[in-house]
Design a protein around this nucleic acid. Structure first.
Length: 628
RNA sequence: GCCGAGAUAGCUCAGCUGGUAGAGCAACGCAUUCGUAAUGCGUAGGUCGUCGGUUCGAAUCCGAUUCUCGGCUCCA
């Protein structure tokens, strides 16, 4: 990791580390970019330009928008700078001198602030190449000609210091490699990733559709996608039953008062769909000449009630818990639901299935005694781990979010937090995966563990989560009767191992590139008759497979076998059964199997059915074919 | 929400500086009945996202709007 000299998040996290040679190239390319931009637009104010995981960026403040044409001109200018073979030179200076240099360059707007970030006593350095120099800890390549392969990729807006209340700057992203071949390879990988993108695969395989007329961020699950979701839900559901969960159902809307009690309505209004108010109430208010802001106030004050599309399932589950008297012997009570919630995500954040406005959480709420905390957390984590391992997902990271002891934004007692944090820590250790603790990332109501995965483009998405909650039991005055015959406050755990079905399926589509394991595949077997005379035999076989709950179809095209096979491959069918005269006579099938290439060839029908049934029930993962 | 880019047939895209649209794949029809990744021929399909404006004339220029994409910010 590069040094964060100009630190994105926190200047306290500055860690001086040697740059790798590749990072040096990228960082130097960023400087060349800034050199070129200043040549073309001398009034530009520079912010920062660090290397990133796959390239670099530089943030600029100027009025001229960076259009694709401008970007091309910049790239051409960069090539000139490289050709000039400027030497990168390090100059260490005092703080006063640094201020002077920055002023001479006319770069006061951001660079002075960046200079302030450098702690007293630390070296202050500039790197100079040709006419350009930049406050920078380094390090750099020796000469600009060492930059052999770079490309500017895109322009984006970014806020100075990542703060939306600051001015928005223009950020140019680019990438650079040691050789042209490596750059070409990288660009090719990006193209490949695009093909795996769940939005493309989802359309090609008819999994889901987001329709303008239905609404932004609202997913329509098409038949094929619905099958995948049903299989996943059935899988999770059976695990829940094994683990002592009780499944419940709750409505999609609830009274505002419910969400006032939980705190969701007052605190998270900006990210909720607006409340639903009864017609009579509205017309009455209209008669009174009530303005929109009056209405909003009345809603806030609780003077009028209405309904809210639920942003969370927990208030509903809490009311289920509270609907009966609970004894300590009943705990833990684990209420699970595939509960659909609605949140008004910012329009710019919406993304295929991974960021949507209506989604179904594989949610559950556990009500327990304090001493049951660790066991239950462990149980939750076990479920997550099981799910991930069955799906062959190993590329995830675990984040333990703890409170910042210096902050007072948290509810609950410090001692309880300590216990909960320790319970989380212990539980996550049993997972036997790497995890990182993040101080200050806890929710205000309790610490949590999140599972984060990357999509094909390298973006990270939070999936599963396990959160301890001290807040809601308090707000809803939950209690159980203890062995001492006194009322006690239960602790709550929120957990969702998949996060949401939408996001999880999106990630899963990319994980498998659309080539699902047979148990999840919408179409498990496709029968390819050699010619139309065999259509009846194909139908017969189809019926047999259907009787055994194997999802199959017959390819009725009248083309050549090669064409049918090609179609089956692009449709990512796990098993293709070729039915020719030979097979019909011998009672065999000829198999071409994407998920089990070693089965390829001729085998008796019974054998095939037995194998595939076993493959499905064992939820076997696809075996990699060499070429694909 | 903010910055930037974009929206042309079911999909992927072409259509330069204004003269009312084109390809490949898919679909459909006919022929073909074929042994492990593309058989041939033909047909149909678009008020160029939507609404306004400029113009004799707009897919093309301008404005607004909806949606999408890449980031940024946010994500109980």
């Amino acid at each position: 990791m590069a040094l964060q000299e100009t630190g994105c998040r926190s200047s306290r996290l500055v860690i001086m580390k040697e740059m790798t040679p590749l990072e040096e190239i990228r960082h130097s390319t960023a400087h060349v970019l800034a050199t070129a931009v200043l040549r073309l637009f001398p009034d530009t104010q520079l912010d920062i330009g660090p290397p990133t995981e796959s390239g670099f960026y530089y943030d600029f403040d100027l009025e001229t928008p960076f259009t694709p044409e401008v970007l091309e001109a910049i790239e051409a200018e960069m090539k000139k700078v490289i050709k000039e073979n400027q030497r990168f030179e390090r100059i260490e200076v005092s703080r006063e001198e640094a201020i002077k240099i920055i002023k001479e360059m006319g770069q006061e707007r951001y660079k002075l602030g960046r200079l302030d970030d450098i702690p007293e006593g630390e070296a202050i350095s500039f790197y100079r190449n040709g006419e350009f120099s930049d406050l920078c800890a380094g390090t750099h390549v020796s000469y600009t000609k060492k930059i052999k392969a770079f490309k500017l990729l895109q322009v984006a807006g970014s806020y100075h210091r990542g703060d939306a209340s600051n001015k928005q700057l223009q950020r140019i992203y680019g990438t650079a490699f040691a050789t042209k071949d490596e750059l070409a390879e990288h660009l090719e990988r990006l193209e490949e990733a695009k093909k795996r993108d769940h939005r493309n695969v989802g359309r090609e395989l008819g999994l889901f559709h987001i329709d303008e007329m239905v609404g932004q961020g609202l997913v329509l699950w098409k038949p094929n996608g619905a099958i995948i979701r049903q299989e996943l839900e059935a899988f999770i559901s059976s695990e829940l039953n094994k683990q002592g969960y009780s499944q419940v159902y709750s409505p999609h809307v609830g009274k505002l008062d419910l969400f006032r009690a939980s705190g969701h309505f007052p605190y998270y209004q900006d990210s909720q769909y607006p409340p639903i108010i009864h017609r009579d109430c509205l017309s009455e208010l209209a008669k009174e000449g009530c303005s929109c802001s009056d209405l909003s106030n009345k809603l806030d004050e609780g003077e009028i009630d209405g309904y809210l599309l639920k942003p969370m399932n927990c208030p509903m589950h809490i009311r289920i818990f509270k609907s009966e008297q609970r004894s300590y012997r009943d705990l833990p009570i684990r209420l699970a639901e595939f509960g659909t919630v609605y949140r008004w995500e910012q329009s710019g954040e919406l993304n295929g299935m991974t960021r949507v406005r209506g989604f179904t959480q594989d949610d559950a709420h556990l009500f327990l005694r304090e001493e049951q905390l660790q066991d239950e957390i462990q149980g939750c984590l076990g479920l997550v781990k099981l799910v991930f391992s069955v799906l062959g997902m190993s590329d995830y990271r675990v984040r333990v979010s703890l409170r910042d002891p210096d902050s007072d934004k948290y509810v609950g007692e410090a001692a309880a937090w300590d216990k909960a944090e320790e319970a989380l820590r212990q539980a996550v250790k049993t997972l036997d995966v790497e995890y990182e603790e993040e101080i200050g990332e806890a929710a205000f109501y309790g610490p949590k563990i999140d599972f984060v995965v990357r999509d094909v483009i390298g973006r990270e998405w939070q999936l599963g989560t396990v959160q301890v909650d001290y807040n809601l039991p308090e707000r809803f005055d939950l209690s159980y009767v203890g062995s001492d015959n006194q009322d006690h406050r239960p602790v709550m755990i929120h957990r969702a191992p998949f996060g949401s079905m939408e996001r999880f399926c999106g990630v899963l589509i990319e994980h498998f590139g659309g080539a699902f394991p047979t148990w999840l595949a919408p179409e498990q077997v496709r029968i390819l008759p050699m010619n139309d005379d065999l259509l009846d035999n194909a139908e017969e076989l189809l019926n047999e497979l259907k009787q055994r709950q194997i999802r199959a179809s017959v390819d009725r095209q009248s083309g050549k076998l090669g064409a049918k096979i090609r179609k089956g491959e692009t449709d990512k069918i796990p098993h293709m059964v070729i039915l020719g005269q030979r097979e019909v006579e011998d009672g065999k099938v000829s198999l071409r199997s994407r998920n089990n290439p070693e089965w390829d060839g001729s085998l008796p029908l019974d054998e095939f059915i037995a194998r595939i049934e076993n493959e499905i029930s064992s939820k076997a993962l696809p075996k990699q074919r060499e070429s694909s």
